[in-house]
């Protein structure tokens, strides 16, 4: 109001929040699907506008875990390297496989699986963990989902060093074919956000979901060709694309190992992705307005 009589602690003008007119907040109850969808899109847009906050939070999450340690986030790389080396020697002996063929496959698979598994388990706490912030300030919910995905992408980037080292040791560079993994990577990022948002919402409402998800992931790890090569299945190999983990892994792992995934694999990966994204979107549109009451 009359700023003239506000002496002393008058703030620098940069810290006065100004708006350009129009409503900053317009919440109408009882909207139909299109109205809710509009709000969900606005949520995504707002989160994208706050990308600097999202990336900062994701970095702080990673750094925070390793604050005070000498190697910092490189501890992640080191523990993955030890895991890959140990499992690589063990299984190549058990399954009588050539280390040069098996270890690059295993390194790639374990790093990718680590990404999926950590992200899924963190997604279950996506909203419930941020309950204090959610109840204190209106923030787009996609921000919390994006933060989890970004955080895990950063961790994944650290683990790529292990893959590069293994490839270098065995001189198994995929060459130009590796570029074919890019569409797969993009699909993974979109899927990651969809899965994270969906799990975070479901787990906010039903508190017995996280252990269920954890055991499903455990089973999926052994059932899917992560540490064992898909070629080991002779009969019924054509049913493999029914497993979403298999096809989604192949579209990224295949090109990096110099194998081009077939049509069936791409068809399956795209089909499952569209299904997941659509379900996650419908869920988000439906429950976004209730999330603050659930956490």
């Amino acid at each position: 109001m009359n700023r003239a009589d506000a002496p002393l602690a008058a703030p620098p003008p940069a810290l006065r929040l100004k708006t350009r007119g129009g409503a900053t907040l317009d919440l109408v109850a009882g909207l139909g699907f299109s109205g809710r969808q509009h709000q969900a899109i606005a949520d995504l847009g707002e989160a994208a506008r706050l990308w600097r906050l999202g990336t900062t939070l994701a970095w702080l999450d990673v750094k925070g875990r390793y604050r005070g340690s000498m190697l910092g986030p490189l501890w992640l790389t080191l523990s993955t390297a030890v895991m890959v080396a140990a499992l690589g020697f063990l299984y190549s002996t058990l399954f009588k496989m050539v280390l040069r063929e098996y270890l690059p496959f295993l390194a790639l698979s374990l790093v990718l699986w680590g990404y999926v598994q950590t992200m899924v388990s963190e997604a279950c706490l996506g909203f419930t963990q941020n309950d204090a912030i959610i109840r204190a300030v209106r923030m787009p919910f996609s921000l919390y989902g994006g933060r989890i995905v970004l955080r895990n992408v950063i961790v994944l980037a650290h683990n790529i060093i292990v893959i590069v080292v293994v490839f270098a040791i065995f001189d198994t560079w995929p060459g130009a074919r590796a570029a074919l993994a890019l569409p797969g990577v993009v699909l993974w990022l979109v899927d990651s956000l969809a899965v994270t948002m969906a799990l975070a919402a479901i787990c906010a409402r039903f508190r017995d979901i996280p252990p269920i998800v954890a055991s499903i992931m455990q089973i999926a790890f052994f059932v899917s060709p992560v540490i064992w090569r898909p070629e080991l299945i002779h009969r019924g190999a054509r049913f493999l694309p029914l497993n979403p983990f298999y096809s989604l892994f192949e579209i990224v792992r295949g090109p990096l190992l110099g194998e081009i995934p077939g049509h069936m694999i791409w068809f399956s990966a795209l089909g499952y992705s569209v299904l997941m994204i659509a379900l996650a979107w419908l869920l988000f549109v439906r429950v976004r307005g209730r999330l603050a009451f659930w956490v």
Binding site: G21, D26, L27
Partner: peptide
């Protein structure tokens, strides 16, 4: 009014930049 809880019935409309001091140690 701060948009944290969305109304179950009715409508809330706010024009102007908004700051709600609800949690002293926010984030």
């Amino acid at each position: 009014l701060a948009g944290i809880y969305e109304p179950v019935r009715g409508r809330v409309r706010v024009c102007g930049s908004l700051n709600a001091l609800l949690d002293p140690n926010l984030g």
